[in-house]
Amino acid sequence: MFAAGHPEEVVLEQYAMGKLDEPAVEAVEEHILVCVSCQDRLDLTETYVRSMKSALASAQKAEVESRWRTRIGGWFQMPAPAWAGAAAVVLLAIVAVFNLRNFTRSGIPAAVVLTATRGETASIEAKGPLDLNLDARDLTPASTYRVQLVNGEAEDVWQQPSATVSDGYIHVRIGKHLSRGQYFVRVFASGAGTPREYALQLR
């Protein structure tokens, strides 16, 4: 993990992407507190990761749009019966999607760790159930916590009235279907006022 006393590039990258486990995070952060050259290295790594994510997302979007344009262009050359068939398929697909949204989310749960610090919002694909691991360090001590999920308009989406801390995290599972967008997870200590809030982006 460390080479010649400094974190390796792959470790800094994993830290920048939020993929290091807690003991490793501790070691890296303690080192960065006192090492100027590694602060610069981390800055560069974060810039690279952020830029690459952005460029890859744009490239993927452009590729999808290009495929649709090619496909739509091909449709205008189809004979009339093929048009009728295509319309029927689209209608069936709309009905299927509408029904799917009313079913409970199924499939392998996607795990995501949320920390209540400013920086990159945790971002995950909107499919399947979610296993949230909420960083509970320095949370107001309580026997249980109420966990609430609100959407970008602060509308209540999901709640768990009592959750507990285990290994420094609050673990909750959201089986409900969630559409893409910005969400906030709020943790309330029982009887106390100020919640801890985590941001989550479903893409």
Partner: peptide, 13 residues
């Protein structure tokens, strides 16, 4: 600056 950095990444890709 962010846009320029994204352009660099796009050039790499």
């Amino acid at each position: 600056i962010g846009r320029q950095e994204e352009e660099l990444a796009a050039a790499v890709l």
